[in-house]
Each structure stands twice: as structure tokens, then as C-alpha cells.
Amino acid sequence: MEKVEKKLREEAKKLLAEKKVDVVVGYEAGTLPLTATPVFITAPEEADRLVWNAFCHHNLAKYVHDLISANRDSQKRLKPEDRKRKVVGVVTKGCTSRSLVIHLQERQYERLDLSILGVPCTGYVDRRALAEKLGGEEILEGSLDGANLKIRTASGEKTIAVKDVLAANCVTCRFNNPVISDVMLGEPAPAMNPAAEYAEIDEFEKLSPEERWAYFQKEMAKCIRCAACRQACPSCYCRTCFAEQSMPQWVGISEDPSDTQVFQFMRMYHMVGRCVDCGSCVSVCPMGVDLRKFLKKLDKDCFVLFNQRAGEKIDFPAPLQDQRMDDKEDFIFNPGGGH
């Protein structure tokens, strides 16, 4: 990983120095132990701030969309020939690359707007899993030591294997190497365990509707409507979210069980064929709502029904932008037989 980091800094420096990109979106060390945080590098000499490690959980495609659309907005009043393209270099792991593909499928910007710095990924640390391993003790200091985390808490030194605290989406990741890139920084990472991808969903489906409803209710009750899930999601780029429309008002803004359920349900449903299972919404949620339990179902359905995985192929329309005469329709009701 240190090798990748070194190459990443070199590549970013080069791109900036040669003015091939206006900015490199990447990660730098956070202010808390064992964290990384998004950073925007605009000068070659700042490229050494970039890091690549097991704490880089954000899906940076979100910022790519933000930066390019902000640039486009700022030039609206210029003549077309005077407008300048803003080229964004972006540190891209597998999930990030699929989000970029979705943006491209949905014509949000052009491939020319991007310079993709591909990084092989072996998963990121889930803060909640780590906290649980530490029994809720505060991390006073920490460092990454190969495949282990060295941590100091009030009760002493601890060593925890990174693989034991990986985020759930990373453990079963099918795309831990970018599906598109301009330059790959390092050898492709070894496969994770995609065979178990839907195991959790399969289990949940076996529960009774009442049990599933009870779980949905319980999880949604944790939500404080801060919208961090939506804001962190690269696929949530609507200028005005349905949740913020006033005419008509689709959902109430209060902390009402039904409104929260409907808000979350519809936000998630908007992810049909558009959720890359990057885990951003889960990792940013301050309350730890188990959104993945539901989002991954959409992913599964998409594959089962339409044989597609979100953001896998650039030259293929997203599932709900497409249809086939022979799509499955087992769910269509037929009174008097054949259902």
C-alpha cells in the first residue's frame, strides 16, 4: 500500500505540473487517529499530502460530480467558446470507478472531464466494527502496521487485524479494482469474497413479513434526518431532492416515523441499478442505520431480474433507463390463474 501511495503522489504531481488536471481529489490523513479525509490538491507541491490506506472510505465520485457541475454553473453566462473544461483527477477504487461509470451513463459529464487514478483496494476499516472490537473505548493513538492496527486506549495497547474490522461491503466486494482508469497505481488487488455477496439478503428474505417490517421500523427509528447518507452518495445528485420539494411536498420534514420511513425507502429505491455498494451512506451515518441491508436487496434484484450490476459497464444503459420485451413479469397479477 505504501508503494501505491508513493506512485499516487508522483502521478498526481505529474498531472498537476503538466496541467493535465485542474485538481486531484484524493485522501489525506484526518485529524483523528486512524482516519482519512477527502482533500483537493491543486498544486504539485501539495501532492505529498495524499494518502492511500485502509481508512479511505469516502466515495470521491461525489466530489467529481460536485466540482464539474459547479464549474459548469459558473460558466453558464459565458459564450460556449469561452467556457473552460475543468479536468478532475480522482483517486479511484473499484466502487468509486463504478460511480463514475454511472455518472457517465447518466450523461452528467464526459470522460474527457476525468483523469482516473486507479488504486487497487483491499477494503476499508469500518469505524463501528472497530469501536465494537475496542468495547467502545476511545482511540487515543493509532497506527497502521502492515495488516494490523496498533491502537492505544485508556486501558493500554491493542493490536487488531484490519481484516477483522473491514466494512461489510468490502468483505464481499466483487469490484475491488477499478472498472475504468487512466492509470493503475499498483498491481490489481486480490479478489475478496463475492460469492457471499447476497448471503445477508438471502437470510433476511427468509424472515416473515412481520419480522422484516419490525427490522425496517427499528432501523428507520434511528434516523435523525440529517441527510448525511444522501449527501455522501455519488448517485444522489439531484439538484432538488424530492424530500425538499414543497409543491408537492412528497415527505414531511418532521421526525415522524412514517415520513422517515418513506424518505429512506424512496431514497433507497432511487438506487435501483445505481447503488455501487460503496458503503458511503453507512459509514457517514452518525446513528448507524443499517441501510445496506436494504440497498443490497436492490442490487440483488437488479442482477436477478435484469442481469446487471450497477456501474459495471460504461457502454450499457442503467437498468431503469432500459427495458426489454421479454423482461420477467412474474409479479404481474393474473386473476383466474397463471399468477
Partner: peptide, 24 residues
């Protein structure tokens, strides 16, 4: 630049007090 415009900080803050009024 990196702020994602969520309300986490303000909703968890003990002193933030801004509110909205809505009718249902």
C-alpha cells in the same frame, strides 16, 4: 470544499438551535 452539506454537526450539536416550522 469537502463539506457534504449534511446536518450531522448541527443535529448532534448541543447548542445549535435553528428550526423550521411546518404544517401537516
Amino acid at each position: 470544499g469537502k463539506c457534504i452539506a449534511c446536518g450531522t454537526c448541527t443535529y448532534l450539536c448541543p447548542t445549535c438551535h435553528c428550526f423550521d416550522i411546518s404544517d401537516e
